[in-house]
């Protein structure tokens, strides 16, 4: 295990419904990242399909065995690759999925657990939700995946951190909303605060990769970045611009951060479990009344 790792953030603008064009761009950027000695490249949520696929779901969905997916997995021979697409299960359920591919294999697969279906979002109409948060061993510690809205639920990073994650990848399609007086979008400000707090609380690196571009007037703000376990931004990609950028992670920071602020060590998992059970039981009783 090496202490210093270069990661690439593929802040691209997917073409809505054009899987083959998006696939080619993923492959080209993987090659570019390899020449820049990146050990990992992360792409945004639904980078292979575009975000608001709606009734294109049926056309763009791929099983993990589909040649398009297998081409990307195969491209992870010399670099770890995190990418996201509409996954179709054998039972023909459709998921927003991110894959962690390494050494030409699927090392981990995360199906988005929290599907926003309110306001401008309509994911629950088209997609089934995932059921778990797992971590996977890599050459540079354990990695965890969560997709966009997953990060807005405290349970997601909490479970990944308890699962031993040293590095959490967050592919996202975060829209720019709430322009006000400040020099960033309201939604971007919230994302930055959220990830900074998580990184410090859990002593974990966060790799946030958000797409750019417009879909029918909805603008995805980009602003991808890496936050260290000390809550510092190692790199921040610009807003509104398609870009491939890089950050160097020093993994020894994790060790120091967790010694200085040993939140994870002191976490009372049994207490959480007991309390959750009590709350669930209470709720069931209340709902029955």
């Amino acid at each position: 295990m090496t202490d210093r790792v270069t990661v690439a953030l593929g802040q691209l603008r997917p073409r809505l419904g054009d899987v083959s064009a998006n696939l080619e761009q993923h492959l080209a950027w993987i090659e570019q990242a390899k020449t820049n000695h990146a050990a990992l490249i992360v792409f945004p949520e639904l980078g292979l399909t575009g975000y608001q696929v709606q009734d294109l779901t049926l056309d763009v969905a791929r099983t993990t065995k589909h040649p398009d997916i297998q081409r990307l997995v195969a491209a992870s021979q010399d670099i770890d690759v995190v990418f996201s697409f509409v996954e179709e299960s054998e039972q023909h359920l459709f998921y927003i999925t991110a894959i962690y591919a390494r050494r030409g294999q699927i090392a981990a697969k995360h199906r988005k657990v929290y599907l926003p279906t309110y306001g401008m979002f309509d994911e629950g109409r088209y997609f089934a939700c995932g059921e778990e948060f797992r971590t996977v061993p890599t050459d540079f510690g354990r990695s965890g995946l969560m997709i966009c809205e997953d990060a807005w639920h405290v349970s997601s990073p909490y479970l990944l951190a308890l699962g031993g994650a040293d590095l959490i990848c967050v592919p996202a399609s975060g829209p720019a909303r709430s322009v006000a007086e400040q020099d960033r979008f309201g939604s971007h400000v919230f994302w930055r605060d959220l990830l900074q707090v998580y990184a410090r609380l859990f002593g974990t690196y966060f790799i946030f990769v958000n797409r750019t571009g417009f879909e029918d007037g909805v603008n995805f703000f980009g602003g991808s970045g890496v936050i260290s376990p000390e809550g510092e931004w190692l790199v921040e990609a610009p807003e509104l611009t398609e870009t491939l950028c890089y950050a160097e992670l020093d993994l020894s920071v994790i060790r120091r951060a967790r010694y200085i602020t040993p939140i994870l060590r002191d976490e009372k998992k049994h207490l959480v479990l007991r309390e959750l059970e009590r709350l669930l039981e209470h709720r069931e009783r209340r709902d029955a009344e």
């Binding site: 720019a176 322009v179 006000a180 007086e181 400040q182 020099d183 960033r184 979008f185 571009g213 417009f214 007037g217 603008n219 807003e239 509104l240």
Partner: peptide, 25 residues
């Protein structure tokens, strides 16, 4: 009035990017 006050640079950046992208797309 304060809530309706925009960061002009950011908003103009979005709107010009919007025109460019939606027209060329």
């Amino acid at each position: 009035e304060k809530k309706l006050h925009l960061n002009a640079k950011l908003t103009l950046d979005v709107l010009t990017a919007f025109v460019r992208e939606e027209v060329t797309k």
